[in-house]
Amino acid sequence: MYEVLMVVYLLVAIALIGLILIQQGKGADMGASFGAGASGTLFGSSGAGNALTRATAILAILFFIISLAIGNLSANHAKVDDSWNNLGGVGQATEEPVSTPKTTDAEKNKTEDTIPD
């Protein structure tokens, strides 16, 4: 599930970047008002902006929703132990941790008394 969301997230991000780069800026409408012939385009003089703006808004909403879902999954995701950490093999015995000798209360008090000030 996590990997699928990451792929969809990447595709939505690339599509969002593409749609933003395709759109014209507000200053580009200045040439159309002086008779540059923008009304003869495929979407008309203002139709392309509305369709591209709506598609950009939809992709932006998807981007944020998927971002929150991936963040939630990665926060609750248990870290899988890496197989590179144990290269010894399955059949080999591993070292056991060395146990520390236990001290009694009398030995603890004795070491506290001998610490110089």
Rank of each mutant, 00 (worst) to 15 (best):
K110L: 08
M6I: 05
I61A: 15
Q23Y: 02
A51S: 02
V12P: 01
G88P: 00
E95A: 14
F63L: 05
S83R: 15
D29S: 08
L68F: 13
N85M: 14
D82K: 06
D81T: 13
S74A: 13
L68P: 02
A51Q: 03
A57Y: 07
I61G: 13
S33H: 13
Y9I: 07
N86M: 08
L16E: 09
S67I: 01
D117C: 06
P116Y: 02
L73V: 07
G40S: 04
F64N: 04
K110E: 06
G27R: 12
K108D: 09
D81G: 05
I58F: 11
W84E: 08
L19W: 06
G71Y: 05
N109Y: 12
K108R: 15
V12D: 05
A38D: 13
G49K: 04
A78Y: 09
T104F: 06
D113E: 14
K108P: 03
A28F: 10
T94H: 10
P101S: 12
L10W: 07
L5H: 00
Q24D: 10
D113M: 12
V4Q: 14
I58P: 04
L16H: 09
T114S: 14
I66V: 15
S99K: 15
R54H: 06
G35M: 03
G18Q: 02
E3W: 08
A69W: 07
N76Y: 01
G71S: 06
A48T: 06
P101I: 13
P97D: 08
E96Y: 03
V4H: 09
E96N: 10
E107G: 01
G44E: 02
E96P: 06
T114A: 13
